[in-house]
Lab assay of single mutants.
Amino acid sequence: TTYKLIANGKTLKGETTTEAVDAETAERVFKEYAKKNGVDGEWTYDDATKTFTVTE
């Protein structure tokens, strides 16, 4: 399944996707990606669109 991340960070803005077996796995991947890019904010997830959003 393809999951999408929308990053609304102070230093990183944009979108990326990952293939994962479930939302929990995708969330781990995206949180690691955000951490590597210095983004720390509020996370939301929309199951209907398989989209995570992080906003600083």
Rank of each mutant, 00 (worst) to 15 (best):
E27M: 14
A26G: 02
K4R: 13
A7V: 15
G38F: 06
F30G: 00
E24Q: 13
A34T: 06
K31V: 06
R28K: 12
A20T: 05
G14K: 11
E24H: 10
A34W: 08
T49F: 05
Y45K: 01
G14H: 14
T11M: 11
K31L: 06
K36A: 14
V54K: 01
D46F: 04
T16R: 10
G41N: 02
A34F: 05
K36L: 13
V29K: 08
T49L: 07
G9F: 12
D40E: 14
E19S: 10
V29W: 15
G9R: 04
D40K: 12
Y3L: 01
N8A: 09
D40S: 13
Y3W: 05
L5V: 03
I6T: 04
G14E: 10
G41F: 03
G38Y: 05
I6K: 07
Y3C: 02
R28G: 06
Y33W: 15
K50P: 00
N8W: 14
A34Q: 02
E15P: 07
T18V: 15
E56M: 08
W43S: 00
I6V: 11
I6C: 07
T2F: 09
L5D: 01
D47Q: 10
N8T: 11
D46W: 03
T18C: 15
K4M: 08
E56N: 06
E56R: 05
G41V: 03
A20E: 04
E19I: 15
T25W: 07
E56G: 06
V39I: 15
N37V: 11
A34H: 02
V29Q: 08
T55Q: 08
T18Q: 05
G41K: 01
F52I: 01
K35Q: 11
K10G: 10
V21K: 13
A34D: 00
F30D: 00
E15K: 07
I6F: 07
T53P: 00
G38L: 05
T51Y: 02
L5Q: 01
E32R: 07
E15I: 14
K4S: 05
T11A: 10
I6M: 07
E56C: 07
G41R: 01
K50N: 07
T25Q: 13
L5T: 01
D22R: 03
E56A: 09
Y45A: 01
E19R: 13
K50V: 03
G9Y: 07
K50F: 09
Y45E: 00
Y3A: 01
T17Y: 15
Y45G: 00
F30S: 00
T53Q: 06
E27R: 11
V39T: 04
V21C: 12
K50D: 02
V39L: 15
V54H: 02
R28T: 07
E15Q: 11
G38T: 03
D46G: 02
L5N: 01
E27F: 15
K31E: 03
A7S: 11
R28M: 10
F52T: 00
T44S: 13
K31D: 02
Y3E: 01
W43D: 00
K50C: 06
T49S: 10
R28Q: 10
D40P: 03
Y45C: 00
K35A: 13
T17A: 07
T17E: 09
A48W: 07
F52A: 00
T44L: 08
A26M: 02
G9A: 13
A26Y: 01
K35C: 11
K10W: 10
K35N: 09
I6Y: 07
K36F: 09
